[in-house]
Nucleic acid binder design. Structure first.
Lengths: 206, 206, 206, 206
DNA sequence: CATGAATGAGCCTTCATTCAT
DNA sequence: GATGAATGAAGGCTCATTCAT
């Protein structure tokens, strides 16, 4: 019985943890960072403010985990594609399209990871996300170079450029409250994919 | 005598204004945005807190001017180059190199314009900076397309991509406290310039 | 147990709320309005400044409730008397005497409602109090006129005059720190009652 | 020459003093007390903030003199009437009508002396005004009693009542932004005069 | 004596964090 | 472990007063 009780308690706690994280995520997405006070988060999660501190050491840690959580999924998707067996060119194209697609569908989520005013300690999580994303791309590029599929280049720089292209184009596209039409969407994705392709292959005009 | 007195006072006030701006800039660069309280800024500038309000209407305005001041110079430099009479390819190359050069020399200043946690009201100034920069590039690209020097493309998207490339590569390069060696510097600028070139000319590998 | 705990907590909170209100009232009565800063009030109530905001949304609301609380009781007393079935003359006499009596017993409290320097937002509560009191009297007078017990007159003007008589006489009597002797008290109440009577019946000397 | 220079300087200073007082009065009348900062007053008077302190020791003293100045004229008018040789009944009527008339014409001026939120130190001036006004009436009443023209009464109480009637009726009439029509005006003055008459003669209905 | 920029104490309010229950 | 009221430091801003020029 002790076992079952503990298990149930663990379950409850896990669920509570998740509820708090979700509440934080929701608030950040809806109301901008600045309104995501511990009080609001707790309220939305249906727990007491003090309870939050039973699951997270500080606000910074909580928000950091929110960013981290959101980021990880994006990273995983891209990372999975990169890990596949396929020509570099194809993998890049797939990865970029997947990323853009998710971001556009996710709406303001991309914005959150990029441009939103943000709490001091949380900035680290955000920067880390970019760094990780760049790492994944850097791996793909380095592979491509070694395999002779790509020209020589500093993979970290190109990777950063890819992240920059993705982020800035997405921010530009998503920053307004306007939603993209389906037709626009396809064209947009194509252009961004082209830009990334060109950045990686670096064919210069004479 | 009245004249000299006024002149001297004006001088002093201008200097004080500059001191306050510099104090704000320094604090932002060193200690992150969040520590740039009016009290700290005033303290660092060697004035009383109330004095700050004699020169700026609010904290947002002050920080906005810090960003704006830094931004404008960059924008002017790039804008001037774009306005010249020369082939698009050349102008782009010059503009990109000038921008990167200034950013690298400016040290962590570029970082300020890009990735730093930031006050709500100040975010506007920062976003505005990116938008303005993108506008300048968009103008250049649109011209190039009309003149037949560039392939058809959505100038606003490419422009955003250029901003992304510049900002992200610079952030990557400057984010650490490490300073770049001179030899690295040249190579770095070359690569970024190449990336921008490729983004604009969009030559795709078969 | 949960019940008792909650009950006890509620009790404590109610007591704290009362303590804060009392602290505010005391400060206002003793030290004039302007010294009733949130800090002083909190200090006097033995709580932290932030605590005040757990019970009141803003300073204006707190001070408003101080005034309102005091006022409402007075209004209720007078209003109840006016609502009774009795000759106008008698009801007026009772109401006036009740009001004066309470004010004299309440010490300098009446002063608070009348003449004390006051915070912008709170002024509304005070003016409102006078207006409400005047309304009650106006109702009584209008009734009296309709019933033929009083001569024709503009009830709102007479009502205002009654409020003026009450307030000014009370202020005069209470403004000093001196307390009224019992014998004086009776005479004072009689005179004020007479004044109100005359104002309402308006018998002019030839 | 020394003499003339001094005289001219004195003249200038007197004028400046007057300008500052007028500026303060105007601001108080137009913008409510709270907006009458030393800076605004100085600005409106066309002098530097520091200059104000050459003519008044403190803000409290300045505002006090504003109230005092306004009050004195009212007091003088009433006092003059009371000092005349005439039946008490007549003098009271004249005094009351003069006071009400001036107040109604003066617009918000009466309100200023009565109900406006007010600075700590200035309250004294305001209370003093009421006290002085009451004194004048008390003198009239005491005379009337001695002369056998009025019934026995506590002159200070009746005097306070008169002040209350005047102030409250005027506040009621002037508090709105509405201006009184000429016909209303006459009726209003008549009623207030009647109320004061009745308060003083105290003829009670059986 | 006039000037007006500088001063800095003081105000209201917010909110991450703690801790008695 | 959950609760949520209490805490109090910190923040942005105002303004009466001072003083070097």
């Amino acid at each position: 019985m002790a076992y079952r009780k503990t298990a149930r308690v663990d379950e409850q706690m896990a669920e509570r943890r998740a509820r708090i994280l979700k509440a934080a995520r929701d608030l950040i997405l809806q109301d901008k960072f600045r309104d995501a006070s511990i009080a609001s988060i707790a309220d939305r999660a249906g727990v007491a403010t003090g309870t939050v501190y039973g699951y997270f050491d500080s606000k910074v840690e909580l928000l950091g985990e929110v960013i981290g959580g959101v980021s990880q999924r994006e990273l995983d998707v891209v990372s999975d594609i990169v890990s596949k067996q396929a020509p570099t060119k194809e993998k890049l194209d797939l990865a970029v399209r997947a990323f853009v697609d998710r971001a556009v569908r996710g709406g303001r989520l991309a914005y959150l990871l990029i441009a939103e005013p943000i709490d001091k300690g949380v900035a680290a999580a955000r920067l880390n996300y970019r760094k990780e994303l760049a790492k994944v791309f850097a791996r793909l590029i380095a592979q491509g170079v070694v395999l002779g599929e790509l020209p020589r280049q500093t993979s970290s720089i190109t990777a950063a450029a890819l992240v920059g292209i993705l982020i800035e184009c997405l921010t530009e596209a998503l920053s307004g409250s306007r939603t993209m039409k389906k037709s626009d969407h396809a064209g947009f994705v194509d252009e961004v994919a082209t830009l990334c392709h060109c950045a990686v292959f670096r064919l210069k005009s004479p």
